[in-house]
Write a protein that binds this DNA or RNA. Structure first.
Lengths: 141, 141
DNA sequence: CTTGACTCCGTAGTATGGTCCAGGGTCGAT
DNA sequence: ATCGACCCTGGACCATACTACGGAGTCAAG
């Protein structure tokens, strides 16, 4: 197991040094061992976790959620059924998110189809639809 | 054309008063006329724009993008294909996010499968799945 | 042993999209 | 005239996710 400096893990994971420290503060990354000088010493596992975080972020997870996802991984020794339940909940969350995005996409795609792309922008069906097609119930009750 | 107070436009558009002022500061909403007292005076057009913003936000546009969309609407030299291109880009964005989420969901589902029965959950498929599906080129050049 | 790159820490600033607050002024009804 | 509801401004504040900075210490090559 090779020891890596913060700069090296950062580079290998494709993030900045400040970001690594930030994740540590946020509790996503365990506090690593230190050398006598106080320098952080990481191993390859840290790189894997950083890449995981990067990827999960791309998937639209917040750091808080990613922390939970990482906890799934670490909790495994304790209670497997809990892990399973948590993972299942996450799957449901994600599916909901997918459904939301699909609704967004469908709505937008419908608008794109309505617009043939000819003529002036004013009067474009997309812009018109954006104004008119909304239910937008007001806040009065 | 009826004159509306900020509270009235806000209510009709389904947003908060502070939000209306915020949009004005951000340049999404034109500065309205003022009464002698300094009170803002809006018309129905403002409600339409606020609804437009709300709706576009629901479709995943950022305020910056919405500002662009609103500018297109006013720009006589802008064409529908400009609007269409923007919308299409957004559709592509959303589809990418959907695909990513589906991959994440599959990875998690795999985790759920693996956690079933026994077998160590350390060596977790979440981490593995996300590690492998990512290019993760490092920053070195 | 010097030099330059790297690291430490804490704090502050960035952007996004608001939201809230104080300390005023205004409006409409009673 | 007085009350409550509304509006004004400027600025602070919230969360999220970083990014930058100052002033110090450390490491490794030459």
């Amino acid at each position: 197991m090779n020891a890596l400096s913060i700069g090296q893990v950062a580079k290998q994971a494709g993030v900045g040094v400040e970001t690594v420290r930030y994740y540590e503060r946020r509790g996503l990354l365990e506090e690593p061992d230190r050398k006598a000088s106080g320098y952080r010493q990481y191993d390859d596992q840290a790189v894997a976790i950083l890449r995981f975080i990067r990827r999960a972020k791309e998937l639209g997870f917040t750091l808080k959620e990613i922390k939970g996802l990482l906890a799934l991984r670490l909790d495994s020794s304790a209670s497997r059924s809990d892990v399973r339940a948590l993972a299942k909940t996450k799957v449901a969350d994600i599916e909901e998110r997918i459904a939301d995005l699909q609704r967004m996409r469908d709505a937008l795609q419908l608008l794109v189809q309505k617009c043939k792309g000819h003529g002036r922008a004013s009067g474009c069906p997309i812009l018109v639809a954006l104004q008119d097609s909304s239910p937008c119930e007001d806040k009065s009750t």
